Amino acid sequence: MKKVKIYITLKSGVLDPQGKAVQTSLNTLGYAEVQEARVGKYMELKLDDHTDAEKQVEEMCAKLLANPVIEDYQYTIEEGVTQ
């Protein structure tokens, strides 16, 4: 089995209102050193060993998991993961 870890983030230059809310809240709580916060998504998938994981993950991200207009993604694939 293969374990895929996918990280999806907004492209630089895209406004992140959720990140701004987190930054403001942390500043209010006394963490003035926080100058910026960006919020993204993290997903884990488990795939069969017989799968061309890299090709399938690229397709999944392009078709559903990420919006390529405003988001970037990166992933890692771990081989030989047990249930």
Rank of each mutant, 00 (worst) to 15 (best):
K5S: 14
I6S: 07
Y7Q: 12
T9K: 11
L10R: 09
K11N: 08
K11H: 07
S12K: 14
L15E: 08
P17V: 06
Q18K: 06
G19I: 03
K20C: 07
A21N: 03
A21H: 01
A21M: 03
V22S: 06
V22R: 05
Q23Y: 00
Q23L: 05
T24P: 02
S25I: 08
L26W: 01
N27H: 06
N27A: 06
L29G: 04
L29V: 02
L29M: 02
G30I: 01
G30K: 00
G30W: 03
G30S: 02
A32M: 15
E33D: 11
E33T: 08
E33M: 08
Q35D: 11
Q35I: 13
Q35V: 11
R38S: 00
V39D: 04
V39K: 03
V39I: 07
G40F: 04
G40E: 01
G40R: 03
K41V: 01
K41L: 02
M43R: 06
E44V: 00
L45F: 04
L45C: 06
L45H: 04
L47F: 03
L47S: 05
D48W: 07
D48P: 12
D48V: 13
D49F: 13
T51G: 01
D52V: 00
E54F: 10
E54Q: 12
V57W: 00
V57I: 07
E58I: 09
M60A: 13
M60K: 10
M60N: 11
M60V: 09
C61W: 02
C61V: 02
C61R: 01
A62H: 10
K63S: 14
K63F: 12
K63E: 14
L64M: 14
L65E: 08
I70P: 15
E71T: 15
Y73T: 09
Q74M: 15
T76A: 09
T76E: 09
T76P: 03
I77C: 11
